[in-house]
Amino acid sequence: MTVTVITGANKGLGFETARRLIEQGHTVYAGARDPHRGAEAARTLGARPLLIDITDDASVTAAAESVRAEAGHVDVLINNAGIAGPTALAGELTAADLQQVYDTNVFGAVRTTDAFLPLLRASSGPAIVNVSSSLGSLTINADPAAHTDILPAWAPLLAYNSSKAALNMLTVLYAQAYPQITVTTVDPGFTATDLNGHQGTQSVEQGAAVIIAAALSGTDAPTGTFIGASGPVPW
């Protein structure tokens, strides 16, 4: 039994990823912070509902304990939950504005990863997939005009871009700290979801493909990588 935990799985990319991994035979814990929406999504998917608010230490701890009691291990953790935050530029936001975004996109991933590490280490082939964005690439942000093949729509969003850059760094450092776990950052591309008001240029089916590929790649995949639909994304 391959046990997969997905945060933010009640809609969008998380929901589609859960649906297709269940088709592949995974037992999926569909994480959501709203108990009613989470339960409804889990029923629709045929997943196991997992109440988890990644901004709350107690909620994350309780979620990990729930999975431990039921399954005993986790094979794949997909840190998918994230927020866009204010669409503002450098100099237009306060530290408090950034803190709100970082609490989900960065600190939430740390809380969740650390809580589930014992369960991942109990797996024979553990993997962590961090759902990031090309907007978090330092290389692309430094010269967006040179990377339109990877990122067709670029915006210098201070909170979101920098939070995804931080998430990318977490991938590298967790991969170094836990070489027995395959840790991957993925870029789903500009996907139409609630995150961007459904303004994306591709469907959730298209965007979820790279997340699913990383989740299914197994222990033979390289660790500490940043992957998009067309291949490696520059850090």
Rank of each mutant, 00 (worst) to 15 (best):
T2K: 11
T2G: 00
G8R: 12
A9D: 06
N10V: 12
N10S: 15
K11N: 03
G14H: 09
F15C: 06
T17P: 03
I22D: 05
Q24Y: 05
G25N: 06
H26M: 02
G31D: 07
A32D: 01
D34R: 06
D34M: 07
P35C: 13
R37H: 05
E40P: 00
E40T: 14
A42F: 09
L45M: 07
L45H: 11
A47K: 03
R48T: 11
D57L: 12
V60A: 03
T61Q: 15
E65T: 15
R68K: 15
H73D: 04
V74I: 02
N79F: 03
N80Q: 07
G82Q: 12
I83C: 10
A84N: 12
D97S: 07
V101E: 08
V106P: 05
F107G: 01
V110C: 00
T113H: 04
D114S: 07
A115M: 14
L119C: 01
L120Y: 01
I128R: 08
S133M: 06
H147V: 06
I150M: 04
A155N: 06
L157M: 15
L157E: 08
L167Y: 14
N168G: 03
L170F: 11
Y174M: 07
Q176H: 11
Y178A: 04
Y178E: 13
T182H: 04
V183Y: 03
T191F: 03
A192I: 06
T193D: 09
N196C: 06
H198C: 02
G200C: 14
T201H: 08
T201E: 14
S203F: 05
E205P: 01
A209P: 01
T225F: 03
V233P: 02
